[in-house]
Nucleic acid binder design. Structure first.
Lengths: 336, 336
DNA sequence: CTAGAAAACGGAAACGTTACCGAAATCTAT
DNA sequence: ATAGATTTCGGTAACGTTTCCGTTTTCTAG
């Protein structure tokens, strides 16, 4: 049905090897080049990627495993990665593992069976054991958002300096005179949660102040969770003057809770949120937030992967740490 | 390196054809079956999908083209679809086309070149011309959220009854005594926007009332847009007693605007939102919303696709229309 | 026990590329 | 004009399956 290289060879009188060479960017005499191009367009030839894959063992496809698609942070990064990889001819197969380690492990197996050329992963499993099938096959792996200590010399990782981010936010609040600062963090066993909490604690320590651990509220990175945590903090700490919320969804939930309680920002409570510039501009007063460099994360992840794939990236695997930014709004009130 | 069927044949003394038959669920004598299974596990054999694809011309991969990943509605549905298809061995390649018709067309070409076995699409292009390359190759196509009139006998589509949904919401407001009802809809040229607006108008007409078109605010389905539209409506219509917001992101923006303005829900303004049960429960008062059956949409899309793929779905293509639900909360106040 | 039907098997030809490597064509310089 | 160097070319053997279809084995029934 569809034209093959053989048909091109027949029409041009050239050999298969020459057609193949042309198709793969090799040198071909100008006049042959023209003949091949004409034949290709006459016959509407397109390379059969199946046959090509069989020979090269490359699928031009890469797998992406994430805990949950339904989060702006994740969705935005996936969009960026997908866009870049597609421009290089790579298809991106998404696997959502519902923050479930078993599903995550199965996803790796699934992708390896599907012969992806590489795996991008925002890992749920902490020790990286789920990636074994991929590493055994020498597939390039790039992690993002969270790194895995065991694997730090084996796979690339792109993360932000979460400790620094949280420290910046907390220090800013302290510098503005706040002493009783609440923090809403994610699950206690998640890399980013721990780091962000550490930054909060560090800011207190460096200022020679002490924090009260009852001002720390563990949540689950969801809108609902943020709402709940904020209500709890408000109920338990009448003296609290500021809250730092450590991801977008929880920030949203917290804002809603504050509004419901009729608390005026920033007069009665100062707040620093996380991510999503867009939301921060919509809210009045404009929210002061920590922003992660989403574009840069996406770009770094994609380009690490492309480097590994092209084999050009001979330099050893490593962690890329990007900086966050404290984007000032008007949601922090100077305190005396 | 990796074991092939030939190795299995050698170890078991059977022919290639028999191994193949076994692998594809054919009948094999019990004792041979056992021998093959032993060999497979001894040699850690796995089928080479490239070779299989070359023979069968099937990639066990399906493409999904969406306007924008970064929206709960889309992300949730993708998650559901991906989950179901993966269980049937299909990988899902995502293409985000940024609500851009040119990119959407390129995405179709990209996926066709990548030999996907089918395409799932939430279409941006209104006449369906972008799908030609896929239809020419007789690939099954399933649309969702929006249907395309030109293609209604050619491809399956899964949509909700948007007219009815908006009519339900509007009628409910009217029945509660509201007469000056604002509506925030998406872009005027998008299928769902038009339908939802039509439902609003229809509710007025059926009640023998007239609507004032200045209460209709076109927006862009974003948080920011919803915020802006709500502010505009509030500024221009002091007498407005209720607003119907027609998607999740805009509902969020609208709520934020209302809170900022210090307007009390539902005493001073009634509101009906859209989608996202989770959010509606977080907000106080609990939001009355129109919910779309996301699970069912995802399921229907995936099962339509699987039917077409298995060839079993001989029944002709058609549009599946699902019902929405008016989920009552406490954000609508009876008006006298 | 045996003829005939039914089930299970296996050889070999594809599927459409890529890549090795010896052969042919073209170019350079004297 | 020609030797030698440099390009470019092409025949052919894989890559690892699936499938056609003729052969062998096993089963059934009289």
């Amino acid at each position: 049905m569809a034209a093959t290289m053989k048909d091109i060879a027949r029409q041009t009188g050239l050999g298969l090897a020459t057609i193949s060479r042309y198709l793969n960017g090799g040198k071909v005499k100008e006049q042959n080049r023209a003949a091949i191009e004409k034949a290709i367009s006459d016959l509407q030839f397109t390379v059969n990627e199946f046959a090509r894959s069989l020979k090269t063992s490359k699928s031009k496809t890469i797998g992406v495993i994430i805990p949950e698609l339904n989060s702006t942070f994740v969705a935005t990064i996936i969009m960026l990665i997908e866009d870049i990889l597609r421009k290089s001819g790579y298809g991106v197969i998404i696997c959502d593992c519902s923050t479930n380690e078993t599903l995550e492990k199965e996803a790796v197996q699934f992708l390896v069976r599907k012969n992806v050329d590489g795996i991008i992963n925002m890992p749920v499993c902490k020790d990286g054991s789920h990636l074994k099938p991929a590493l055994d096959k020498d597939l390039p792996v790039v992690l993002f958002d969270r790194s895995i200590a065991n694997l730090k010399d084996v796979v690339d990782a792109v993360v932000v300096d979460n400790v620094r981010a949280a420290e910046d936010a907390t220090r800013y609040l302290i510098e503005n005179g706040h002493r009783k600062i609440g923090i809403i963090v994610g699950p206690g066993d998640v890399f980013t949660s721990r780091q962000r909490l550490a930054g909060y604690q560090q800011a207190y320590e460096k200022s020679g102040l002490e924090y009260d651990s009852s001002y720390i509220s563990f949540s689950d990175y969801s809108v609902h969770g943020g709402h709940e945590s904020m209500n709890r903090l408000l109920a338990e700490h009448a003296g609290m003057t500021a809250v730092f919320v450590t991801n977008y969804e929880m920030t949203l939930g917290a804002i809603i809770a504050i509004n419901e309680a009729g608390i005026k920002l920033p007069k009665e409570l100062s707040i620093i949120g996380f991510d999503n510039l867009q939301l921060s501009q919509v809210i009045k007063p404009r929210l002061t937030i920590i922003t992660q460099p989403l574009e840069e994360i996406g770009e770094q992840v994609a380009s690490r992967m492309l480097e590994r794939l092209s084999g050009s990236g001979t330099k050893e695997a490593g962690i890329v740490t990007l900086s966050t930014r404290l984007q000032l709004g008007e949601s922090v009130q100077k305190q005396n």
